[in-house]
Computed example of a mutant assay.
Amino acid sequence: MPNQSRPATLKSMATELGLHVSTVSRVLNGDPTGVERAASAEVIARIRALAKELDYRPNTQASNLKLRKSQEICVLMPRLTDLVMATIYDSIDSAAEQAGYLTFVSNTDDQQPRQMARAEHALRRSVAGLIVGDSHTGDTQPLLDLLARKQIPYVLVSRQIAGHLTAACDDELGGWLAAEHLYRLGCREVAILAGERHASTGADRTRGFIRYYREQGISLRPEWILNGPFDSHTGHQQGAYLLALNPRPQAFFAVNDFLAIGLMGAARDKGLQPGKDIAVVGYNDIPLANELIVPLSSVRLPLAQMGRQAVELLLKRINGESAESTILTPQLQARASSAVLPKAG
């Protein structure tokens, strides 16, 4: 018997059985056109029995390198602590599994060098394709340029970059809807918690919001448009700063719900109540938004659908089919945090 202190290989089993390694490979790799030509029924049975006895596991990475194909999809996400990104990934994983693919996720911390390193690691595994959730705005896209040059199937999710296939939401429209809501409420002095400058999501939402007010003949104060990370800590800090101004903004648009929740915490600390003293609108409509003491108005995105669409587009690219970007439609969910016109600060 072969040395069982090491995992069984095609070569070791071929030696044990007195067969050529290619014969064992055809049988165990399930080549439907080669199995019957490779061996008799008796030999096939012997090979499979030994593989079962030794608990043989195919080396999928080696097979992928040889065949230049894989059933794995790499998903690059900026951070999985973000509930929105985690929700999108969950739907990606489910849709991929239904299509016969496995996914693995790499957390890039929204840093381009880390993104490139994680992607190159995935390419060494000969993945079938990549879904990219952390592309940056601007003309320079090192990773996307690399994937296009190597003809690796890829698709963006939740981010939009001109010239690249994506499954995303119309974030500019979402910002426009938030602005329309606050304007019709009577709010004219409005601040924006705009998120990180490099993220297309925050930039598009901010652009749509500003555009609506400009169309009404109102220019928002640039010093009231603050950039920073997409988290509640930043929302609290920026909210504390803006609420301490004299005059202060009547209303606040935060480009994600965590920024809005942090801002509402800063309002609480100052004895102010959203929906009474100030108006607040967030973005993404995470489940927590409706469960707060003062339910948060928010722009709802079809996150699960976005993930499914990303997989569908990627599979088209993997199969060599033509594909066009899918841009989903957001909806405003008005709640108590923006129920009344606050007095000007």
Rank of each mutant, 00 (worst) to 15 (best):
P302T: 12
R335Y: 02
P7C: 08
A95V: 13
A244T: 11
K69Y: 01
S106T: 10
K69G: 01
L220W: 09
K316Q: 10
Y183N: 08
S22G: 09
V281E: 13
A38H: 09
V155F: 00
L259S: 04
Q238T: 01
L177D: 01
A117K: 13
A179W: 13
T201V: 12
T140G: 01
H198M: 12
L243W: 15
T87D: 11
H136E: 14
G208E: 05
L272T: 10
V281A: 03
L341N: 04
M1P: 08
L259Q: 05
A260H: 09
Q250G: 06
A323W: 00
G138T: 00
V280N: 06
V281N: 04
S232T: 10
V35I: 15
A99M: 05
G34W: 09
H164N: 06
R221Y: 11
G217W: 13
G282F: 06
L54V: 15
P274W: 14
Y183C: 08
V75F: 03
A267V: 04
R26V: 05
S322M: 08
S22K: 08
A41F: 06
L301T: 12
G345M: 10
V294K: 03
P229Y: 02
Q98T: 07
L19C: 07
L67M: 11
I286K: 00
E172V: 08
R317H: 00
H20F: 05
I192A: 05
E321T: 01
A266G: 07
G239P: 09
Q238G: 01
E321Q: 14
R211N: 09
Q160S: 14
D55M: 15
R37Y: 02
G275M: 09
T81H: 02
S322F: 04
R207T: 02
E324A: 03
V35S: 05
G235D: 05
E120C: 11
K11W: 12
S63R: 12
G345V: 08
M1L: 11
S40N: 12
V294W: 06
V84T: 14
A339R: 13
I318N: 00
C169K: 01
N64K: 07
L10Q: 02
P342C: 09
H121W: 10
L245Q: 14
Q331W: 10
Q309D: 14
K69E: 08
L50F: 11
K270Y: 13
E291D: 12
P342V: 04
I327T: 14
P58T: 07
D109S: 14
L28T: 09
Y213P: 07
V155Q: 00
E16P: 03
V24T: 06
R46W: 05
L165V: 00
R214V: 10
R124Q: 15
G133S: 10
I218N: 07
P274Y: 15
A41S: 13
I161G: 00
L220F: 11
D109K: 04
R68W: 04
S106G: 08
L173S: 08
M116Y: 13
E215Y: 06
L165K: 00
F104V: 07
N227R: 07
Y283G: 06
F253A: 05
L263K: 03
L288Y: 12
F104T: 08
